[in-house]
Amino acid sequence: MSLETMRPNPTWDAASYADTVDTLAAHRDELTFIVWGGDWCKDCRALLPDFGAALEAAEVPDDRIEAIAVDQDKRGPRVDEYGIEYIPTIVVERAPDGADGDAGEELVRFVESEDVPPAVWLARELEAELEAETA
């Protein structure tokens, strides 16, 4: 089952979100984005196309993005493992070091709605988290 709502919004203006794109691009090779959503979900349809466009503008490799479709009962792959209750949920992990298939370290999590779009919120939280690590 694919997640069509992750298809990038062609009218999204990356220049208007330059800081967000820069942050995502700066970490594109070290982070993994796991997205749970449903094409039937109005919040997903409203939020995820712009998020997909932000990832595309930041040139995040496809192998760093895992889009997981859930059904209307919010059942789907890894839902229990990650404690997914609301969608869209986006978990950003530091990519695992080895090739053993283990999940990486969770850095930030966007759940359903915030006061700003998911890409902006995640970039802001990632900056704070990664800056705190280097301080």
Rank of each mutant, 00 (worst) to 15 (best):
V92S: 01
R94S: 07
D22C: 03
G76T: 06
A25R: 12
S113R: 12
Y17N: 14
V116E: 14
D73Q: 15
R64A: 13
E66S: 11
I87R: 00
D63Q: 14
R124G: 08
A15M: 13
E106Y: 03
E93V: 05
S16A: 15
V21F: 03
P77N: 10
I68C: 05
A18R: 13
A25K: 10
G37A: 08
R28H: 05
E125G: 04
A95N: 05
A99M: 10
E131N: 14
A132R: 07
A57Y: 04
C44L: 09
V60Q: 01
V92Y: 00
E127G: 05
V35C: 02
R124P: 05
G38W: 00
L130Y: 06
E56M: 12
I34D: 01
H27G: 00
F33Q: 01
E112A: 11
A53Y: 00
G38I: 00
E127Q: 13
G101P: 06
P8T: 10
D102K: 08
A128H: 03
W40A: 09
C41V: 04
E114A: 13
S16P: 03
M6Y: 14
Y17Q: 13
L31Q: 01
A53S: 09
D50W: 01
P117V: 03
V92E: 02
Q72D: 11
A14R: 13
D100Y: 12
A128Q: 12
E4A: 15
P96K: 04
V91P: 02
D43A: 14
E4G: 12
A25E: 06
I68T: 03
Q72W: 07
D63L: 08
V92T: 01
E129D: 13
Y86A: 13
V111Q: 08
D102T: 11
T23H: 04
R75D: 11
M6H: 08
V116K: 14
D80A: 15
P118A: 12
I84F: 04
I34R: 11
D102R: 13
I68E: 02
Q72A: 09
L3D: 01
A103S: 05
A119V: 07
P96H: 07
E30V: 06
Q72C: 07
